[in-house]
């Protein structure tokens, strides 16, 4: 594509300049068409969950009484899975997302461990890894009871 000033054949130069402009015009059209499409497909602004209460999957606050001694359950706190375990009357909390590949962990009362069903990773009550492939421990979360609800402490 020759866009230099070729004085010998003006029509050729004009045609080349025109071609360049046409190319630019087409690019402008394409960009103009694609931009709204990309905006449309982009992830939407995440709904901020005012999450300080541990909820079940339907958004109903978990009843503190239902968490009996020695048992655990996974609920939603601030939109994220959180494991709550009742031990010696206290409620202990942890991020329930396994640090290996993202599965949701569960409390195993028989083994007295937090375990991950995907690849057998195990954590103790401090959240530290004691067995299996997870590269690091799960984050403990302070929880407290208010009324019959379990809240972020």
């Amino acid at each position: 594509m020759n866009i230099g000033l070729d004085m010998d054949s003006n029509s050729t130069t004009r045609r080349s300049v025109l071609d360049v402009l046409l190319g630019l015009g087409s690019i402008a059209s394409v960009v103009g068409a694609i931009s709204p499409v990309l905006a449309y497909l982009s992830p939407l602004a995440k709904q901020v969950s005012s999450g300080n209460t541990l909820e079940d999957k339907n958004g109903i606050p978990v009843s503190a009484e239902s968490l009996t001694e020695g048992s655990g359950l996974v609920g939603r706190l601030g939109g994220l899975p959180v494991l709550a375990i009742r031990k010696n009357g206290q409620i202990l909390g942890y991020s329930a997302v396994c640090t290996h590949l993202g599965c949701v962990v569960r409390w195993s009362p028989d083994k007295d461990r937090i375990e991950c069903p995907c690849h057998g990773g195990q954590f103790n009550l401090l959240g530290a890894v004691v067995s299996g492939p997870p590269p690091e421990g799960i984050q403990p979360i302070t929880l407290r009871v208010e009324g019959n609800r379990i809240l972020r402490g």
Partner: peptide, 9 residues
Amino acid sequence: EEVPFGWLI
């Protein structure tokens, strides 16, 4: 109402 440019599409 919610999706960007959804109205346009």
